[in-house]
């Protein structure tokens, strides 16, 4: 128990140091652009691929479970939209990103720890946390754009699978998409996304920064990073949903 309390304490101390003693502005600008390239642009391919097919699967499964003629076919479009906007894009895409981006962050910072590169930064008088973690936090502020893309591609996937699979017409699907649309659901989804982005940037960084040992421990830290990031995303999802929707 005391171990967990110490971990929570060191996480918040890390955050405090991350936002202190700033790195030279010109260097920081370059680091942020590099992180955007690594963490955001580098993830677009997998995001598009997964979103498209998951959107398609949601559409097909809804269609196969709606056999009652009283229920309008437009429900397929409605259910696809709601599932993707409310949960799939913000929450499950963030968990997938915890595997991709989170492991990358932990292993890259962990390798720097093992090979004394972090010590080298500290000896030079550089705030290594600001240098390494702050650019990741700023880069992940672009994460909502990734989620917006996941929403759009997911709905396109659902539309194509529904229409070309012969389950629904284009008109019915788009009618379902527009049915009872609550703009606040988008606000809710993007509020969640900002919180998840912060978790995605900081928890894996914490795991990598404070790891001890060698190459094997870097692997273990990456696994722990994925587990803890996912757990925190799920918990945050529950709390935010309670606060904003119930």
């Amino acid at each position: 128990m005391t171990g967990y309390i110490e971990d929570i304490g060191s996480y918040f101390l890390m955050l405090k140091r991350t936002f202190g003693s700033f790195t030279k502005r010109s260097v920081l600008k370059e680091l942020i652009l590099k992180e955007i390239d690594d963490l955001i642009i580098g993830s677009l391919g997998i995001v598009v691929f997964i979103s498209f097919f998951v959107g398609g699967v949601i559409s097909i499964q809804t269609a196969l479970n709606v056999s009652n003629p009283i229920i309008p076919k437009s429900l397929i479009g409605f259910a696809t939209r709601q599932s993707i906007i409310l949960e799939f894009a913000p929450t499950f895409m963030s968990i997938i990103m915890a595997g991709k981006v989170g492991s990358f962050i932990t292993s890259s910072i962990g390798s720097m720890r093992v090979t004394e590169q972090i010590d080298a930064l500290e000896v030079m008088g550089i705030n290594s946390l600001n240098y390494l973690v702050f650019p990741k936090i700023i880069a992940l502020l672009c994460f909502p754009f990734v989620i917006a893309l996941a929403m759009f591609i997911g709905i396109c996937g659902g539309l194509l699978a529904g229409v070309y699979g012969g389950f629904i017409t284009y008109t019915d699907f788009t009618a379902g998409l527009q049915e009872d649309f609550e703009p606040f659901h988008l606000v809710y989804a993007f509020i969640k996304t900002f919180v998840f982005a912060f978790i995605l940037a900081t928890v894996p960084s914490w795991q990598g920064y404070y790891m001890k040992g060698g190459a094997l421990e870097v692997g273990k830290a990456s696994t722990n990073s994925f587990v803890w990031t996912s757990v925190l995303i799920i918990l945050a999802n529950f709390i935010i949903t309670q606060l904003l929707l119930s």
């Binding site: 260097v27 720097m112 090979t115 004394e116 590169q117 010590d119 080298a120 030079m124 008088g125 550089i126």
Partner: peptide, 27 residues
């Protein structure tokens, strides 16, 4: 202070020129 670490501690993501230039860029 200049420091020579046991394993060199060069930054993997930078080439030799960028590694050596690093303290100049920072300070």
């Amino acid at each position: 202070i200049g420091m020579l670490f046991q394993g060199g501690a060069l930054f993997d993501s930078m080439n030799i020129e960028e590694n050596v230039m690093f303290p100049l860029r920072m300070f």
